[in-house]
Amino acid sequence: MKISRRGFFKTAGAGAAAGVLSGKADKSLAALPAREDPFANAVSTTSVCPFCAVGCGTVVKALDGKVVQIEGDPEHPINQGALCSKGLAFSQTVNSPGRLQQVMYRAPGSDHWEEKSWEWALPRMAALIKKTRDASFVQEKDGRTVNRTEGLACLGGAALDNEECYLYAKLARALGVVYLEHQARI
């Protein structure tokens, strides 16, 4: 949800992380001189940290469509405004210049990526899925109906949203995939 702007935490970064264990989040910083909130005009949106499964609430601050700060959600009953070093650094992950921004393609035997469009990639991937599925599809094995492919495997999903995981499972099973696995197995 988009929420009204909250008071800017003076305790960004190490202060909040250190406060986690001491249970004294703000006291040592209370004496800091007041300064102008650089994100006074930022739009705040609530989210949940993407790292471990504690499920800490976060407030994502954005200016001109760009994330400028991610803080612990002070209203969240589990983390009550605190975040660990990973959670606090997440704005840098989101804004990393290393983020993938284009569809990348590596041809067989090639030593480099090529930039491609979704329009180019989607039908090509779909054709490969169909080719592999159809060539490996088994309808009957030892006189029993099995309707499966063991030529196609699906992995991953612990970082996806529930709705995404659900559609992933649904699509994989509809294709006849039995090799469907993810991080929970390792």
Binding site: G55, V94, M104, Y105, R106, G109, D161, N162, E163
Partner: peptide
């Protein structure tokens, strides 16, 4: 790389703060 014949598609994903949905904690 020349010895590896795998065709690879690497698709750029949105981060958690760039989309909407639910996740379930521990």
């Amino acid at each position: 790389a020349k010895d590896i014949d795998t065709e690879v598609f690497l698709l750029p994903a949105a981060a958690s703060v760039e989309k909407e949905g639910s996740i379930t904690n521990s």
